[in-house]
Design a protein around this nucleic acid. Structure first.
Length: 728
DNA sequence: AGCACGCCGACT
DNA sequence: GTCGGCGTGCTC
């Protein structure tokens, strides 16, 4: 039953014909408490510890044939044990919401759009101006002599459903049922296979040779080295074998691009699964994969559980991205789940990245993953040149050094584009009183309020608390408040002053809040009306800007001396990813990093010898400090409104753990979490660490039941995070 | 989670 | 004399 309880529940399976087909993996409706719930049949047993009088009968069998295979069910049970998360919620995570609610798994009748008399007579010119998407659909209808299966639209990379609905309302088309067996024609013409280079061919050959068996591959390829082409060729091979593939991406915004590229190359339609779709679309894609009607699925992390009729291949693109780790509830890593699932299904899995995570790099070193390397940039584009600008004792203009300003001017003079990266939004991260030193703090969090000058407001980036920008110090009343530090808004203002004639676009969460405004900005960038592109990590993902030849990273120092042991890794990945946005076939890109630590060993290694050398050195540091991947971690978090309750609870837990572990496991803490006070609650954490994974999990198996018995647990909210990616 | 029960303070 | 705040316990 999908509830946060570490338990299975026993029910009576009525002895009648309806239940003859009941098999593990099927959904059932059961009475639970005073309500009815959709639950999952995990096991059929002939014994129970529950008193017969307490057993209630199952209300209904919802699936004649189970939607999950025995394999997938076993995987979910394994995950429940590994992540120490209640089995009901784990199984729930594998299903789309519509099916969780007990929705029918049946096929809706296939529909086709048909042109009406009115549609034939309608003036397309008028429509083309006011509703170009509807016009495009009518054009497609015309090309296909007035009838078009809805399924054929699935390959389009725009949201066609509202357009179909509008056409229907206007009576320009009508929807009729059609034969689902008729394969829809392609909506995008199939492009010929492109010529792959040696490294790409080798990668394809290695993975293809592993079809039908488990093997994990780490595909390391710099931006532009043609990973996508390797994926699509591999998927084509999978399709040739009449098997299915899942491709995982870290975030929704990357799906349209990849979907378009796949649709051009693959003979089969590409199904999509992510949180930007309606529930019914997600459910349809899920069922299409389950029943084998679709063969390729592109999706974000929850798509990793999609059942496959004929499993062939799993791909995790940008495998280093922290977004693959779910950060609340069932805290799984979709990348790790993909590897385990491939193992259990006996199929290959490909992890791709220009900047592989240290974990994966380590697994490749240990030969648990097979390394594939794509060195060249396709089409002979040259790798960018890195340059450090030492900003010590330099006069900075809102964070911009004279050297960088000069480079920007030169690049503008050549009519080329510039990309500036600053991972902090707002105007200034601190508002301080010059008279008394008072700093604007969030009343509910351990954090400074950030000045947002455009909106004339102060905002907390952790709890969204907001207030008007004060004119005077709230402590001493003097009107000399200064804005300390740099944010994208501030740099934007400086750039407008320094380069008044340049087209400027700022890309961060504030500037792209409105739906579609990111697409709009990206459009302008490609159209060439933007000369300088300024943004946060939003810019590091996916999009390539072919006219960018100068990349400026304004502040690398924050990451160099962060307390988070993963900060170096993330910094290096961001630098290489931003650098990869630049350059074009005939022009070398330049990447400029402003720092006060130009001698920093890891930074030098990164820019002089590349990401691989950096990663090896960073791994050596991890080894020396006995940090992951050389040890395994589990993090117990606790929070409460009472400032000491969480600490008291974790102290008790630490004592129990100490007694159970007999010195085999490092018990670190409890300590206050970074920014211990958040939205008025106090956060603490206890880190358990061990070089031997089995020992850690054996401890957790015995520790958790004790946690539930502790008296102190009542006053806190607590949770366990296995393989935490953030210690906060 | 979602719900009921039950015990205390603020209203008609 | 009752409404409703949320702490506590239970769900086969």
């Amino acid at each position: 039953v999908p509830v946060p309880i570490h338990k299975m529940f026993d029910y009576l399976l009525p002895d009648c014909a309806e239940y003859a087909n009941a098999r593990p993996g099927a959904r059932i409706a059961v009475p639970f408490g005073r309500y009815q719930k959709t639950a999952y049949l995990l096991e059929i047993a002939s014994k129970t510890d529950i008193a017969p009088a307490d057993l209630k009968p199952v209300i209904a069998l919802l699936d004649e044939t189970p939607l999950l295979s025995e394999d997938d069910l076993a995987l979910l049970c394994w995950l429940s044990r590994y992540y120490h998360h209640p089995i009901g919620e784990v199984v729930n995570a594998a299903f789309p919401v519509l099916l969780r609610r007990g929705g029918s798994p049946g096929l809706e009748p296939a529909k086709a759009m048909q042109q009406t008399e009115r549609g034939r007579a309608a003036s397309l010119e008028d429509l083309r101006r006011r509703a170009p998407r509807q016009a495009a659909l009518l054009d497609m209808l015309n090309q296909r002599s007035g009838s078009l299966p809805i399924a054929a639209l699935a390959g389009l990379d725009w949201n066609w459903r509202p357009a179909v609905d509008s056409l229907g309302r206007k009576g320009l088309v009508r929807l009729v049922e059609c034969d689902p067996a008729v394969q829809p024609e392609r909506s995008v013409p199939l492009l010929p296979e492109i010529q792959l280079n040696r490294a790409q061919l080798d990668a394809v050959a290695s993975v293809s040779a592993a079809f039908g068996t488990y093997k994990a591959f780490l595909l390391e390829g710099v931006t532009g080295s043609g990973k996508t082409e390797v994926y699509s060729r591999l998927i084509q091979r999978v399709l040739d074998r009449d098997e299915q593939a899942i491709v995982l991406l870290p975030e929704i915004s990357l799906t349209p691009q990849l979907q378009a590229r796949f649709s051009e190359r693959l003979a089969a339609p590409v199904a999509v699964f992510h949180s930007g779709l309606t529930e019914s679309d997600r459910c349809r894609a899920w069922l299409d994969m389950r029943h084998g009607r679709a063969s390729v699925l592109l999706g974000t992390r929850s798509a990793v559980f999609t059942p496959l009729r004929r499993p062939g291949l799993l791909i995790v693109d940008e495998e280093h991205d922290p977004a693959f780790k779910q950060q609340e509830g069932f805290r799984f890593s979709a990348r790790d789940v993909a590897v385990i699932r491939a193992q259990r299904l006996n199929i290959p899995v490909v992890l791709g990245s220009a900047t592989p995570s240290l974990e994966s790099q380590y697994n490749a070193m240990r030969r648990r993953y097979h390394s594939l390397f794509l060195p060249q940039r396709a089409g002979q584009a040259l790798p960018p040149v890195f340059r450090l600008i030492d900003i010590r004792n330099q006069p900075l203009d809102e964070g911009l050094s004279p050297g960088l300003v000069a480079l920007i001017a030169q690049t503008l003079a050549r009519s080329e584009q510039i990309l500036l990266f600053l991972n902090r939004r707002g105007f200034a991260p601190t508002l301080i009183c010059h008279a008394c030193g008072w700093v604007a703090r969030c009343p509910r969090c351990d954090a400074n309020l950030v000045v947002h000058a455009n909106a004339e407001r102060l905002r907390c980036h952790h709890c969204n608390h907001e207030k008007a920008l004060p004119k005077r110090c709230q402590q001493c009343g003097v009107d000399d408040l200064r804005r300390l530090g740099l944010g994208t808004e501030r740099v934007e203002k400086a750039l407008m002053r320094l380069f008044p004639d340049a087209g400027l676009a700022r890309v961060d969460r504030d500037s792209t809040r409105r739906k579609g405004s990111l697409e709009n900005t990206l459009g302008n960038i490609h159209a060439g009306t933007v000369d300088i592109l300024l943004g946060t990590q939003m810019l590091t993902k996916g999009h390539h800007f072919s006219r960018v030849t100068l990349v400026g990273i304004l502040d690398v120092d924050a990451a160099l001396y962060s307390i988070d042991y993963r900060a170096h890794e993330r910094m290096a990945q961001q630098i290489i990813q931003v650098a990869g946005r630049a350059g074009r076939e005939d022009k070398t890109g330049m990447v400029v990093l402003q720092t006060r630590h130009p001698e920093h060993a890891l930074l030098r290694l990164l820019i002089e010898e590349g990401y691989r050398s950096f990663a090896l050195a960073a791994l050596t540091e991890r080894k020396a400090a006995n940090l992951p991947p050389y040890s395994h971690q589990a993090l117990l978090r606790a929070e409460a409104v009472d400032p000491t309750a969480a600490h008291r609870f974790l102290t008790k837990v630490a004592a129990v753990a100490q007694a159970l572990s007999r010195g085999r496991i490092d018990i670190l803490g409890p300590v206050p979490a970074p920014r211990a006070r958040r939205a008025g609650r106090y956060h603490y954490q206890l880190l358990l660490q061990c070089g031997h994974r089995q020992s850690l999990h054996a401890l957790l198996d015995r520790l958790l039941p004790e946690c539930f018995k502790l008296e102190e647990r009542r006053r806190v909210r607590w949770s366990l995070d296995i393989d935490p990616s953030d210690l906060c």
